[in-house]
């Protein structure tokens, strides 16, 4: 009977542990939402921040985060696609391939602060791009590439070899078989992977503080010429993002309402990440349904 009692006890313990984990998440989310939601207003989301007085918003930081995210995705997507196609379709198993895989693994496990410091040395200093959106986007690309490559490779791998043989047997090149048949079929899982990585990129700060910089100069939202210094599209201007802003005002902020501003900004970050999460699931399911419709 002793064993049975232990069994019950252990089961109870496991339930408690899982309960605590769920509780931690609920408390976390609850805290941020309850603290941050009252801050959220149209003016908070659109007005520039203030350094010394209360009442500033996060408009420019929010724009910067979105712009950086888009640029990063535009740069990293084609590279990750190419790399994953080579890895999954062309690379022959062997020493070279396993070394390459190990290198990608190492890159994916590097601390993001190291990636940011490397970005500082290469993009900011060596390439002379200074603290700018472009430096930031390149650093985030380095940060994003290994995971994105992995997720696309997994997506490609999940498509049956029958499809590849089908293309090859018709005298179609492997390249076109992959890009025109395999890739479209893998789109649902690629898109989910892409959105999940977008969430990661959106919330990343350590890789950005020494690449995209920690200042958010005023922008003229009426000027969309990317070569003008106050244009929102200018990729050569320094750009503090939302995540960096939260870090910045909490570690050295002197504005009186820094706690309220960071709660609001944190809520925005969390909400965006939540949306990305749900979107990834929803799009994955939707596209899956559409592709298999009728069968």
């Amino acid at each position: 009977m002793n064993a049975k009692r232990y069994d019950k006890l252990a089961t109870g313990l496991l339930y408690t542990i899982a309960g605590i984990v769920v509780l931690i998440l609920l408390l976390l989310l609850g805290f941020i939402i309850i603290r941050g939601l009252p801050q959220l207003s149209w003016s908070f989301l659109t007005t520039p921040s203030r350094a010394f007085t209360a009442g500033g918003g996060i408009g420019i930081q929010l724009f910067n985060s979105i712009y950086l995210l888009i640029l990063t995705m535009l740069i990293s997507m084609p590279i990750a696609l190419g790399a994953s196609i080579y890895l999954n379709e062309y690379a022959k198993p062997g020493k070279v391939t396993s070394i390459i895989r190990t290198m990608i693994e190492i890159l994916s496990s590097l601390p993001s602060v190291v990636v940011g410091l490397f970005g500082f040395l290469l993009f900011v200093v060596q390439f002379g791009l200074s603290f700018s959106i472009l430096s930031g986007a390149l650093a985030l690309t380095v940060f994003n590439l290994p995971l994105l490559t992995r997720s696309i490779e997994d997506a490609l791998k999940s498509i049956s070899n029958d499809q590849r043989n089908g293309g090859l047997a018709l005298g179609i090149s492997k390249w076109e078989t992959v890009t025109k048949i395999i890739l479209p079929a893998a789109v649902p899982s690629i898109v989910s992977g892409l959105i999940l990585s977008a969430g990661r990129v959106f919330g990343e700060a350590a890789a950005l503080i020494y690449t995209a910089g920690q200042s958010a100069p005023a922008l003229n939202f009426a000027n969309w010429n990317p070569f003008d210094i106050d244009s929102p599209l200018n990729p050569m201007r320094p750009a503090e993002t939302l995540a960096v802003h939260i870090w910045k005002i909490n570690s050295e902020g002197i504005m009186p309402d820094s706690s309220a501003v960071s709660a609001g900004a944190a809520a925005v970050l969390i909400i965006v990440v939540l949306i990305f999460n749900l979107l990834a699931r929803w799009i994955g399911r939707l596209l899956f349904k559409r592709l298999t419709a009728g069968s």
């Binding site: 293309g167 047997a169 179609i172 048949i181 479209p184 592709l291």
Partner: peptide, 29 residues
Amino acid sequence: VYAMRRQIGMVFQRPNPFPKSIYENITFA
């Protein structure tokens, strides 16, 4: 090999139509 396979086609054990329309399955190649 690509020009050659155009002359020597192959059909496999498991039917493997492409995830495209019936029409495109034929016109693709």
